[in-house]
């Protein structure tokens, strides 16, 4: 188990407190004090599960802006394209599917980046990440792909996650 670090507690506290203020939506002093106490308790107990790597990542403005650009502009475009594609297959009788499980190499090093990429792949309809493995220093994803027109490897990886990975690399590396 990981140690509870000061930076981890602080960053967890800030995230919890921002969420508390957003959810209560009042700047009453009583609410603010309650929120601080509860957030501090939660941060003390849960920061070691929540923070795995550099705790201050969230406060680096360049990466924060890159992350916002990714989740607000790059990812939704991919999402809409994939959604339209799968919806078309559904409305035309679900016959033209070509499912397969492919193995694609991933170059992201950070654990957060790998998790975010796996979740982004799963969120785009038509691809579901099933497993992450590591062989000889290279990370591989097993992806169930509804339109497996390529036999895995670099080209299939480019078709599945090319833009997503380039966007995420700017955020986490």
């Amino acid at each position: 188990m990981r140690k509870t670090t000061f930076a981890g507690v602080v960053s967890t506290f800030v995230v919890c407190y921002v969420f508390w203020i957003l959810l209560t939506w009042s700047l009453d002093s009583q609410e603010l004090i309650y929120g601080a106490v509860v957030s501090l308790a939660v941060a003390l107990f849960s920061s070691r599960f929540f923070i795995h790597e550099k705790a201050s990542w969230f406060f680096n403005p360049v990466k924060l802006i890159n992350g916002i650009v990714f989740w607000l502009f790059i990812f939704p475009v991919e999402l809409i394209k994939a959604n339209v594609d799968v919806a078309k297959r559904c409305f035309t009788g679900c016959k033209n599917v070509n499912p397969g499980i492919v193995k694609i190499p991933v170059d992201l090093k950070s654990m957060y980046g790998q998790a975010a990429l796996a979740n982004a792949i799963t969120l785009t309809p038509g691809t579901i990440t099933m497993e992450i493995t590591e062989e000889e220093g290279q990370t591989y994803y097993y992806v169930h792909w509804i339109d497996a027109r390529l036999p895995g490897g670099q080209e299939a990886g480019e078709a599945i996650k090319g833009r997503l990975e380039r966007g995420l690399r700017r955020v986490w590396e």
Binding site: L79, I80, N83, V86, A87, C90, G93, C94, V97, P99, T122, L123, T124, P125, G126, T127, I128, H144, I146
Partner: peptide, 19 residues
């Protein structure tokens, strides 16, 4: 309802939870 197997059905269900 209509996809041929379990995994394809999950793919279709992702449409509901995203867009």
């Amino acid at each position: 309802m209509k996809m041929p197997d379990t995994f394809c059905r999950m793919q279709a269900s992702t449409c509901i939870t995203t867009l």
